[in-house]
């Protein structure tokens, strides 16, 4: 009898108190035991506070072996699952959210404006453009407007192509570079949480609870 499980790397929970096997992994098994496996209790959340729980693949195997001792268990997913329990998650105020988004947008807007200007100064772009103007037209000018305008248009189209969308409309179906960065970042954070929690597990193996969140989200 073959059982295939595919645990997720990270699961966010905000209301369920009892996390079942079905919540953290996908299970493929013969129908007669599938329902039983899905209802297996992985962890019971007791404290009503933000905390990360680490479920190792060995914990899951042990659980399954209890109800199906003769099953061959094949793991096709992650080796450990982080259950991020955060009771505040569902309560986040939409007004605060809008304010936060506005604030971060302002930070990024002001910051990238300054960054591009400081790059121009650093790289002496205005001087280069003046030189271009002299080379092409043989006359000195303080403001080579033509090249400024075409450069600005080029810059705008460059950023839009780079970020792959224009006011909510995606140019191609690919994820944008920020999507990629966000995924990488989430992945790194999850990996770090797993490392920190399993270190703590090794230090006090008797402790049933799977460690504090270390202030990470």
């Amino acid at each position: 009898m073959d059982v295939y499980i595919k645990p997720s790397e990270k699961v966010a929970e905000n209301e369920k108190k009892v996390v079942k096997l079905d919540d953290i992994c996908e299970i493929v098994a013969p129908t007669k035991i599938l329902e039983k496996l899905k209802k297996l209790e992985v962890v019971r959340i007791e404290a009503e506070k933000e905390r990360n729980y680490l479920i190792d693949i060995t914990d899951i195997i042990r659980l399954i072996q209890k109800v199906a001792p003769d099953a061959t268990i094949n793991n096709v997913g992650a080796k450990s699952t982080v259950i991020a329990y955060n009771p505040q998650l569902k309560k986040q105020n939409p007004v605060i959210k809008v304010i936060l988004i506005g604030f971060v947008s302002l930070v990024l807007m002001a910051g990238s404006a300054t960054a591009i200007m400081s790059f121009h100064t650093d790289a002496q772009i205005p001087q280069i453009f003046k030189n271009y103007h002299r080379l092409f037209f043989g006359e000195e000018t303080e403001k080579p407007v033509l090249i400024y305008v075409s450069y600005s248009i080029g810059l705008a189209s460059g950023i839009i192509i780079f970020f792959n969308h224009f006011f909510g409309k995606k140019i191609m179906d690919d994820p944008t570079p920020i999507d990629v960065e966000m995924t990488l970042y989430d992945h790194d954070v999850t990996e770090t949480i797993v490392e920190l929690l399993s270190d703590k597990d090794k230090q006090n193996p008797s402790e049933k609870e799977m460690g504090e969140s270390h202030g990470l989200k």
Binding site: L108, G111, S112, I116, L155, I159, F163, G168, T176, I178
Partner: peptide, 12 residues
Amino acid sequence: EQAIVIGGVFGT
């Protein structure tokens, strides 16, 4: 991303 586009173009 939109904020960065706007900021970058404005800065230039």
